[in-house]
Design a binder for these strands. Structure first.
Lengths: 336, 336
DNA sequence: TTGTACGCGTTATCAG
DNA sequence: CTGATAACGCGTACAA
């Protein structure tokens, strides 16, 4: 590795001068500067980031803890976050926990060792002990998509429970009375919050949905769940399926159509997220959109503010009903 | 930041002893070890990774250069790569170039500064000058999904051109004679290779497809492209649409159905990749599957071997036709 | 305007 | 079995 010292020798100056040229501070004579710059390009010198961090005590690195990258939701979130950080000269250390608490704990140890200046996290952990280690080390944390249990960190996330209510509301207004909630992954707090919102809103209408929750971010599982729900007696069968995510809802559409039911003629289906995938299905999925890219942008803005010892105001993260082709009044509605 | 020195003081030993305890090498008396370990937990000490790197000269970090994370293909690839690296105690530095050559160059400078031990890259660059900087610094590079132009790096990628041929072959065997290729993004070498394979195979059958290529990884654009292609005279209109990716093919399906055409009754559609999304559309997409997860696994294995100065044999990365519901003989076939 | 010397947190070498 | 010390590459008081 060629170091600042090699440059100094090559240019016939001291290391201090080289440092000054590289960082553009302090006085350096024009001729000297030129000689140094020439040596820098000649030897293809790049300053060693680790050595810099040793001196400065700041790493310009940010941990980004996410359950996965191979599901569209988190892929998009990771993309936005990474770009926003890079734009600010911050290096993202993306950590896929793969929904494993042990792995998440390991990642936190690693981030501590890396001396990260901040952490963005969508955690799958149930308690705060792991994140407390970061707090104790003075590392600012911002929660994304979901709160950090037991921690007083700011959380950049939409109101998932309100989202659950919105889904129910829309179908209620269309006249539906028999509902099922198809959702996954069951352990995900945002999913739970949506289910809770839906159940609550339906309860206000004197109704109670069937709730079928699966374990993974998985299309097949949700399809199977929905197929089971739809298999019963046609007059008892739900006329409205509420997916806790778009993928769950897409699974539900497949289940219905596989059973020979028309969507939305026989069953209405609604999703949550408004991923690109919502438009890939046919009929295209009606869904509640969350401002995913805005969430990423806001989360980074919050964290950067925290890292600078400031507190930024958190913008609204509004949910929005996106009407497409999978919801309609229930079949018997006209006959009631 | 609490350092090894703080631990030494707390435990009443020298820093050397602390280091020995932490790294579990050299002789340390049981009592001494206990005292040190107690101090470590008491002060919640985590060794500073940067200082370690300074001494060792090795960073245990790997650059992962990808065009994006917000498209399913690269999201999955990134996920697999990140997990494989972490499993081996290597830290992934994921870099989204967002298809920008300038940004990619900036990332390479950053990776050099980070003293990465290796790089995995799906580049959008047209020449080798940027990657040559890594080569000059002695950093092993493995290309993923596509070769690195002008560089003698190993490339872990399926035979995209053969994939293009497979798509044509399947439709030819069904009896189709009028083809269009719908693809994006146009500047992507894998896409180009697939188009080339398709065109070549069709030429061998004395046929020439229309080729319509868009600029982004974009559903809407491909749908528009396909709509244009299908808009003409029904007897001239292609009976088979070849998507260079699943997303392009899904766009094509929407175009056809939007025009009142039946899939696969009036038009057959085939895709490439076999993403989960291929199964979300209705009818489900027939496609050529590439072993995406295997590509990630192999790429990491190759890189790790290179980093150890070894060379691993590269396993086959077979493509496979996945028959689903979007291809059938052309409508006039029975009447010919 | 330029240079000398120290310290950031580790680990390896060598001495005891 | 344990400790003192040098060195990794850099930035910055301080001196010249």
């Amino acid at each position: 590795m060629t170091s600042i010292r090699d440059i100094a020798r090559q240019a016939g100056v001291s290391v201090t001068t080289v440092s000054r040229v590289i960082n553009n501070n302090g006085y350096v004579g024009a001729a000297t500067r030129a000689r140094v710059e020439q040596a820098v390009t000649a030897l293809a010198f790049t300053p060693n980031a680790h050595a810099r961090r040793m001196r400065s005590g700041t790493s310009r690195m940010v941990g980004v803890i996410l359950p996965a990258l191979d599901v569209p939701f988190f892929g998009i979130l990771a993309h936005v976050i990474e770009q926003e950080l890079f734009r600010r000269g911050l290096q993202a250390l993306i950590c896929c926990t793969d929904e494993s608490p042990d792995q998440e704990a390991d990642y936190i140890s690693m981030l501590l060792a890396q001396q990260v200046d901040g952490v963005l996290a969508a955690s799958v952990l149930a308690d705060s002990t792991q994140y407390q280690r970061l707090v104790d080390a003075g590392v600012p944390i911002v929660a994304v998509d979901r709160a950090l249990p037991g921690l007083a960190a700011i959380s950049v996330a939409p109101d998932h429970q309100a989202g659950g209510r919105m889904m129910a509301e829309h179908l209620l207004q269309l006249g539906h009375r028999r509902f099922a909630v198809i959702g996954a992954p069951r352990h995900s707090p945002p999913v739970q919050a949506r289910v809770q919102g839906t159940v609550q809103r339906l309860a206000e209408a004197g109704l109670r949905p069937q709730v079928a929750l699966g374990t993974a971010h998985d299309f097949d599982e949700c399809r199977a769940l929905a197929a089971e729900v739809l298999a019963g007696d046609p007059v008892q069968r739900p006329t409205a399926l509420i997916g806790t995510t778009d993928i769950a809802a897409i699974g539900a559409i497949h289940a219905a159509i596989g059973l020979g039911l028309a969507v939305p003629g026989d069953v209405s289906v609604i999703g949550f997220d408004d991923l690109p995938e919502a438009r890939y299905v046919l009929p295209a999925l009606t869904t509640v959109a969350q401002p995913l890219r805005e969430i990423g942008v806001q989360a980074v803005a919050q964290l950067v503010a925290r890292m600078a010892g400031e507190v930024a105001v958190l913008a609204e993260l509004p949910l929005r009903l996106v009407l497409r082709d999978t919801t309609a009044p229930p079949p018997q509605y006209g006959l009631a």
